[in-house]
Design a protein around this nucleic acid. Structure first.
Lengths: 242, 242
DNA sequence: GTTCTCACCCAACAATTGTTGGAGACGAAA
DNA sequence: TTTCGTCTCCAACAATTGTTGGGTGAGAAC
């Protein structure tokens, strides 16, 4: 890394292209008053019309929908540096819910601040636009993953993605995926039992290790091969190499 | 409808909120020089870095990815009034391809025109932003659909969505879904044979009719019930009632 | 007309995934 | 300690979906 860059948001937006020092300073101002949340708490619920935007500093947050039959589908993961709902002002009523998966540290950002960023900081505006487009690209990849790959490859692919995204913001310290098997199943769109079956297979093949519900990857290159992971959809070409 | 509104793009953006007459006039200027394309031709291929944006006037266009095993996954449908790639300028290399499914009439829009719209027509800017957010919401719904619903409900849900989207731009004239069963399968993420199985079930139950590879819906209310379709994710609340 | 291709259709079988029911481990609460 | 709840893990069986192979019909090419 060229700079230590403690600010996760700045680190994330850095991936979209260079930012000037005034941009970085502004982003530091934005991150004020972080607050903690326990695991499994809702930030925003389906049908609400929220006024704030949330930035993830640490932990893991998800978007999810609950179906008529009670099943839950997790449709996105938000990691440190991710903004949960940039578009709150445009779409009106939420068509899904947002909740924490782990303990989290978050920052509320008001609509006014966002608009200030968008209006007066062109490089930041471009970077924020970039990040919503990457979110869309990730959604497309999940769709491919779910529709056309078997559950074992799909799970491996998910681990590769989270690994890459955490690495891209320098948060790939320890184990990734501190999730229960039920949550994993809700992401992959399979039953809990099947998620457990598949996870234990990956473990048997030495592709991942699990300790205390935490998945670790001993050999990311091997896992990527197994998953046929190609990270171009994350559009991290500007990122500093590790 | 309050106005005849021949312009599909205007009709579509109307769903985001009211536009002034100067906006409508500007949108008429944008639609110049439409051109035709046959079914199954590529507009943009994976890896390219295109300079133009395409607007669909008639026909059906899709985004798709091809996997290492040769399988194809269709990850989005673009209908009349949809803009294929508003974000071309930001993300650089395409992480997927775009191709026609049917004969199409399209318009090329240059980056300069798009930037003019975004800079100088705030209502249009907001509407375009709205439309990309709706695209994202559709992607989320497809993910839910694929992961948590059986193939018959999933297919019915797709038909409901296309019906609603065509209705929203006043293009729900005749049959929807002029697709081969292979294309249908590539959308749903199932095998061709299974797509055919499921389609014939829907037909047996009288939920759809098929003629010349074209699906028609005799009773949309019944189909919606079967599919458990809730259209809120399309965010059409501003749309004029039919 | 004949041949070729392509889409649709169908059946039998195989692979994947879901469901049910239950056991063991662990921590929190009583 | 005991109880309770939650998570992991496992096995047997059921449902869904994929694969293979083949048949039909319509239109295009010859």
């Amino acid at each position: 890394m060229h700079s230590p860059m403690k600010n996760v948001l700045a680190r994330k937006l850095w991936n979209a292209g260079r930012l000037a020092s005034e941009d970085l300073k502004k982003l530091d101002d934005v991150i004020a008053d972080p607050f903690q949340l326990d695991a499994r708490e809702d930030l925003i619920q389906h049908g609400e019309d929220p006024q704030n935007v949330h930035l993830v500093l640490s932990g893991m947050v998800c978007r999810y929908k609950v179906l008529q039959n009670g099943k839950r589908a997790i449709v996105a993961l938000m990691l440190p540096g991710d903004i949960c709902d940039l578009h709150v002002a445009i779409l009106g009523r939420m068509d899904h819910s947002i909740g924490t998966l782990t303990e989290c540290s978050l920052v509320k950002i008001s609509r006014g601040v966002i608009e200030d960023l968008l209006d007066n900081y062109p490089r930041i505006r471009r970077a924020l636009f970039w990040s919503t487009l990457v979110d869309e690209a990730i959604l497309r990849e999940w769709l491919v993953n779910m529709g056309r790959r078997r559950a074992d490859k799909q799970m491996a692919h998910l681990f590769c993605e989270v690994h890459a995204r955490l690495t891209a913001v320098n948060r790939m310290h320890d184990a990734l995926m501190p999730l229960t098997q039920e949550e994993l199943a809700d992401i992959l769109g399979v039953s809990t039992v099947h998620a457990q079956r598949v996870l234990s297979e990956l473990r048997n093949q030495g592709l991942v290790t699990v300790q205390d519900s935490r998945v670790a990857v001993p050999d990311i290159v091997r896992l990527r091969q197994f998953a046929e992971f190609e990270g171009d959809y994350l559009h991290l070409e500007h990122a500093a190499a590790e």
